[in-house]
Design a binder for these strands. Structure first.
Length: 422
DNA sequence: TCTGGGGTCCTAGGACCC
DNA sequence: TCTGGGGTCCTAGGACCC
């Protein structure tokens, strides 16, 4: 038995925790560079703002309704997310962190409670999360992950915020009403293909012919089908599998045209990637860089490319990352284009505890390791970017836009909330 | 004017081996 | 004229998720 805990319009809820004046209003949170809508309050959904829409396309609609747009504040969201996780870790033994705003809970140990008891348990869990973090959630309970996702949709629409798809009657009734695109793992494109084969609802998919589904969707579709039947195929991953790849990239606030600025930007991403790897206790032995023009400006000449280098030894040193990322980007940079974005990709990740040296490789540079840990300490204590490499640039005209960001209330000393008492 | 970032898994096809 | 069979590994691209 699984329970899926999903935070309601998470980024908006985080903003509301510290700014209650946002309650009851249409609020959206924008992606990096203030580009697209990535979270919407219910009020924003109600006035017809779609998920993922470019902000400039819905700005007047939102403002006309007295709504508010905010730049994303990932430091704040990340911190509140961890607070929600903590409540869950504290409440149930098996938790899989699925995303910044979702966790699967293993409920097998609670099966003796029965459907009503499970509902009651999850109701109080929900109340506890709200009380301790300020974040509202919905919880769906079911015998498989795919069904618990469906249960969560029901929960979000219900008054009590909890729903269970345990008994066959309720499951049948719910799946008959659930559109095929609303199943976890099936988006519009796949949905259209299923529809053209007469599969319109979740119940249709559950009862479909297995070889037909295999043909349309491959093995993934077959798994979803079994999960809809109540046969669990996707286990709870309480221990996160090791990360395999990492990407650090950003769109530019304004187009980049020179190699010099491209070098700065790529050094910035390389430094971020190295710091993230160190924080996660990882090293990488393949590093790559990519760049691309703005694909939405079809009148401009388009170009995108990438290059990778295999390193002699796995590393997480910022110095090495910057050096190799610049080599990669130099190899693919071409004059005469307006670049929109660049980034660094890191592959072949391994734990710092299991690095193997081959006969020809240079021994691990301990001085470099010490330098990195000093830099990390300073940046942790005084804020990200306090100490950085000169090659990351000073003026940074290419920097991502973030004009409407709220303060980092919980993670930055200078931005703590000020409370006055009289 | 203005269109995100970070992941995973699966599959088909090519390279290569015996 | 006639041109095997079976296996692994790697990679790029597609597809999906939040």
């Amino acid at each position: 038995m699984f329970a899926l805990v999903d935070c309601n319009c998470f980024y908006v809820s985080c903003e509301r925790v510290f700014n209650p004046s946002l309650e009851g209003k249409p609020v959206v949170v924008l992606s990096n560079n203030d580009g697209c809508v990535v979270a919407r309050s219910n009020e924003a959904k109600a006035i017809g703002i779609p998920m993922g829409v470019p902000y400039f396309k819905c700005k007047s609609l939102l403002q006309g309704a007295g709504g508010i747009a905010l730049s994303s504040n990932y430091e704040l969201y990340g911190d509140l997310s961890h607070r929600v996780y903590e409540v869950l870790f504290d409440s149930v033994p098996d938790v899989e962190v699925y995303s910044i705003d979702e966790c699967f809970l293993g409920m097998s140990g609670f099966a003796h409670l029965g459907p009503d008891g499970l509902m009651e348990f999850c109701s109080s869990l929900r109340a506890r999360i709200l009380k301790l973090t300020g974040i509202p959630t919905g919880i769906g309970i079911a015998p498989t992950k795919v069904l618990s996702k469906a249960a969560n949709r029901v929960a979000k629409k219900s008054e009590i915020g909890v729903a269970a798809l345990i008994t066959h009657e309720i499951r049948d009734r719910t799946l008959a009403k659930l559109e095929v695109e609303d199943i976890w793992g099936i988006n519009k494109r796949l949905g259209a293909r299923l529809r053209s084969n007469g599969i319109v609802t979740a119940a249709h998919l559950r009862d479909a012919n297995e070889s037909l589904i295999k043909q349309i969707m491959g093995i993934i579709g077959v798994r979803i089908m079994h999960e809809l039947r109540g046969l669990s195929c996707l286990p709870l991953l309480a221990i996160a599998p090791p990360q395999k790849n990492m990407v650090c990239s950003r769109s530019f606030g304004q187009p980049v045209t020179t190699l010099e600025q491209m070098h700065e930007a790529i050094a910035f991403h390389a430094a971020r990637a190295a710091a993230k790897l160190r924080h996660r206790g990882l090293r990488a032995s393949v590093i790559g860089a990519f760049l691309t023009t703005n694909r939405f400006k079809s009148i401009e000449p388009q170009y995108s490319n990438s290059a990778t280098i295999t390193l002699p030894t796995a590393t997480n040193s910022t110095r090495h990352f910057i050096q190799y990322a610049k080599l990669c980007i130099s190899a693919i940079f071409k004059d005469g284009y307006n670049y929109k974005k660049c980034g660094v990709s890191i592959n072949e990740l391994s734990s710092v505890n299991t690095v193997q040296l081959d006969l020809l490789s240079v021994a691990v540079n301990h001085r470099d390791e010490k330098l990195m840990s000093v830099i990390d300490d300073l940046n942790r204590r005084y804020g990200i970017g306090t100490v950085r490499f000169a090659s990351e640039g000073i003026g940074r005209p290419w920097k991502t836009r973030s004009d409407m960001r709220s303060p980092r209330y919980t993670s930055c000393w200078d931005e703590l909330m000020v409370v006055s008492a009289y």
